[in-house]
């Protein structure tokens, strides 16, 4: 099948320019009404997330009766200073749960489609690599655990931390040519998933809503605070690490 490449490119270019003009016109229309960026921070739902006064929605005060958040005070909503974390693991937990299901589906899909093949003899890794890798893995794992356990305080959390931990396993695969420990990952996948569901159901039983926070929030900004978020992020971290490791094990096995 012969394709006329320049003509297709030109056609694509014209189409793209046309689209760009249309989008520009739509976004800069001078008519009446709301348009892009017309909501200020005060008018967005995030304003309440930042002030931690979602429970007292509609008022400016949070449960302490103040329109302010003071570090170190006890028992603010979910107790996380990192507001993105608070949104991901608490306010919009169902989205995050869905996100985990997406990763779970992708890992299962890759496992379903990849056929394990007999590979030719790969070149052995050199002695230097073999000596260095365990040390690097140790530090990688520590970094991963650190990122997971500080998700409520600093940028990070279960997803990046899980990815870092998975990278340690990938390193191990590459250096030692070991066949994957797929069974362990499978069991971890299941257990972490069921653990997350259990967290949700305990919340439903104790607080009357799925994924409701039922653990003490601690003082805002302390290292050990926001117990609910720490546990959820730990489970997410295990799950993500297991999924990513099993995806890469499937890719390496192919």
């Amino acid at each position: 099948m012969k394709r006329n490449e320049p003509l297709i490119n030109l056609f694509g270019l014209i189409l793209i320019i046309l689209l760009a003009v249309l989008v520009y016109l739509a976004l800069t229309d001078s008519g009446q009404g709301l348009t892009m960026l017309s909501a200020d921070l005060e008018q967005r739902v995030s304003y309440s997330y930042l002030l931690k006064n979602v429970t007292a929605a509609g008022q400016t005060e949070n449960q302490h009766g103040q329109a302010e958040v003071i570090l170190g005070r006890e028992d603010y909503e979910n107790g996380a200073v990192n507001i993105v974390t608070a949104i991901v693991t608490d306010y919009r937990m169902l989205d995050t749960f869905g996100e985990i299901l997406v990763l779970f589906a992708a890992s299962a899909g890759v496992g379903l489609l990849m056929v394990e093949r007999k590979r030719g003899k790969a070149k052995e890794a050199s002695e230097i690599v073999k000596t260095a890798v365990p040390i690097i893995i140790l530090f990688t794992l520590i970094t991963g655990f650190y990122i997971i356990s500080h998700g409520h305080l600093t940028p990070g959390g279960g997803f990046p931390g899980g990815a870092v931990i998975a990278s340690a396993f990938i390193l191990q695969f590459l250096a030692f040519q070991k066949s994957s420990r797929n069974k362990v990952f499978k069991i971890l996948e299941s257990l972490a998933g069921i653990g997350l569901l259990a967290m949700g159901l305990i919340g439903l039983y104790l607080e009357g809503s799925l994924f409701a926070n039922f653990l003490p929030n601690g003082s805002l900004g302390a290292t050990i605070s926001a117990a609910g978020i720490m546990i959820i992020y730990a489970l997410i971290g295990i799950k993500v690490a297991a999924e990513l490791s099993s995806i890469s094990a499937d890719f390496i096995g192919e």
Partner: peptide, 25 residues
């Protein structure tokens, strides 16, 4: 979201009017 500040369908539908071309896009 940048126009209204909410993501909930019920809240979006009861918002004040959006610009016609922006709403269409």
């Amino acid at each position: 979201y940048s126009a209204t500040g909410v993501l909930n369908i019920a809240f979006l539908s009861s918002f004040e009017a959006l610009k016609s071309s922006f709403a269409f896009l």
